[in-house]
Design a protein around this nucleic acid. Structure first.
Lengths: 339, 339
DNA sequence: ATGAAAGCGCTAACAG
DNA sequence: CTGTTAGCGCTTTCAT
């Protein structure tokens, strides 16, 4: 194991002091350009890098940003992660990705570990069932910038929020079905404790109101958005006397479930029954008929997250938390909702 | 910002020395159980955690493992990452995930940065075009455990390898088509510089040989496995005088492409043309007809990776590199290859 | 614009 | 089994 070089090696080689080398490397203003260049040249030649542990220990600051997601492999989060990680890496930050596996207990532990690791910022999508956010207090209390995205606190919490326009998504999905002539539109929603479903549901309701379509409680479902649950609900729908002629589901898995049940029962989509999902999961474009869905543009959300956390970290003195940042959505029309 | 507690606070509160606290916390063998418990109790009560920077600086060891992947959002890698990250986290390691975006230059930079970060181990899937692996030397030269998976060095390189059984996958896919009665089987492969495609291709060849099916150069394609490339190749196939009656593609995207072209041209799958893909991408089960494919069990690969890197890290003194570890694959039969 | 000196919080010899 | 003493490599006063 070749012993690592230190700042002292650079200093002695150049006949200057370690502090000067340190300052040169950190672009300290009161160091002559001449010295800076001299130092940087040698550092480059020797392929020297500062020991990040030593820097962090001394300055009590890391270059690490924590990111908490329910799971890496969900399409939406994977895409957000990809963008965030790439952008922050370019800015010299390590991103440490943590998975809550949708467990509030694990989430709590993750926050503590991230805090103990002295991260300089945290980006988090909470679990579906997190209603108490006090385990994040340790961050806010210590002025560690915190940005929530996607699944965010429903009530006030002193952290920045970045999220897709779920209300608009719900509204446009429903309006689209109405404009296609649907008279009775079912809805599969997740639990209303989660902002995502609350907002999409609100959009659904308001679209119905706008077009004076009566709300039918018997065709609106609230449950975890798994395939099994979806299939069960859809089957109920198709057994009703007055069947709905369309459905808006709060995720694409449920929409796929709806399509499968319809196929099984010989109900023609979109002719007899129209479907709109949510998220633009890759599967929704592959299945036939393709499923109309709301694209949340996870890449845009990722970009916004990177920008936001960097702003907060760099301007940490001033309190920069603003109103929630809402990113746009796009209704993506496919065969499942053609006229 | 509440000042963080140190080991000294614990020591003075308990009337012992900081080194004893340190040793107790690190489960040093020559510390009395009594003292250990006393220390751990207080540490628990105060919610104290060691400053990882200080520990790392002093011991010149981190608790960080680097992982290099082409991209987080590829289904296969996302699944592997999920498992690896969860398992290593449980063992007290941070995983720092890096994306090469399939660029050898970026990959090189990542290795250097990980080395500079004093990671204690690296897990890597190289880019499709990495043929020179010398940028990994900095790790092996400094005895930092290195495990390649999926895309691995084709020639000898002194690092552990974990990979799916690509040869067998290629063989079984092809044999399956033959047993279904196919007389002429096309193949879409990636570049043979990459072990994945080399091995799958070798399996294809050997299955043909075993069943005495002549190799037709005009129906075997080597190119990047994108949808566009696949569509182009398949169109060529269907224009031929003697059309093949089946195809084995080295990934699922190409298989989906094949299915789409067939659908467009009114060629019935599986009746006239049978398709087998590779990877068991979620899309392959959703599309209709469902696509027969080779499941690589990314979760098993992830488990094996976690076990392997931990072994290497913990037994770093002895050189533990073994022959490549080959994980099993499973032929997953769907409608695209029914008799 | 630069240097000298102190010390971040911890672990590891070296004692005993 | 435990305490004492040195640093790990860097940044940051405080000097000049």
């Amino acid at each position: 194991m070749s012993k690592n070089r230190t700042i002292i090696d650079i200093a002695t080689a150049l006949g200057i002091s370690p502090s000067t080398v340190s300052r040169a490397l950190n672009d300290h203003p009161r160091i002559s350009n001449e010295t800076k260049e001299k130092v940087k040249k040698l550092v480059f030649e020797l392929d020297f890098t500062l020991n990040p542990m030593a820097s962090s220990l001394r300055s009590n600051k890391t270059q690490t940003i924590g990111m908490i997601v329910p799971g890496i492999s969900y399409y939406f989060h994977a895409t957000v992660l990809t963008v965030v990680q790439n952008l922050l890496w370019k800015e010299g930050y390590q991103v440490i990705i943590c998975q809550s596996n949708d467990s509030p207990e694990v989430e709590k532990e993750l926050v503590n570990t991230l805090y103990a690791s002295r991260v300089v910022g945290v980006i988090a999508a909470t679990t579906l069932r997190t209603t108490d956010f006090s385990h994040y207090d340790i961050l806010t209390r210590n002025q560690i910038p915190l940005v929530f995205y996607d699944r965010v606190p429903v009530n006030y919490y002193p952290a920045q929020i970045v999220k897709g326009d779920d209300y608009k998504g719900g509204f446009e999905a429903t309006e689209h079905l109405i404009q296609l002539g649907c008279k009775s539109i079912a809805h599969i929603s997740g639990p209303l404790t989660c902002n995502l479903y609350k907002d999409r549901y609100a959009g659904y309701i308001d679209a119905l109101k706008k077009y004076k379509i009566p709300y039918r409680q018997d065709i609106v479902f609230f449950h975890e958005l798994s395939m099994d649950n979806a299939v069960e609900s859809i089957k109920k729908i198709f057994k009703m006397e007055t069947k709905p002629d369309g459905i808006f589901t709060a995720n694409d898995t449920s929409a796929i479930g709806a399509l499968m049940v319809a196929r099984e029962l010989g109900i023609e989509v979109p002719k007899e029954f129209k479907i709109v999902g949510y998220s633009n999961d890759p599967r929704s474009s592959i299945i036939s008929p393709g499923i109309t869905t709301i694209d949340q543009h996870p890449d845009l959300i990722g970009q916004q997250l990177a920008i936001t956390i960097l702003d907060l970290i760099r301007g940490a003195e001033t309190n920069l938390i603003t109103e929630p940042i809402i990113t746009p959505i796009t209704l993506t029309i496919r065969e499942s909702s053609k006229a």
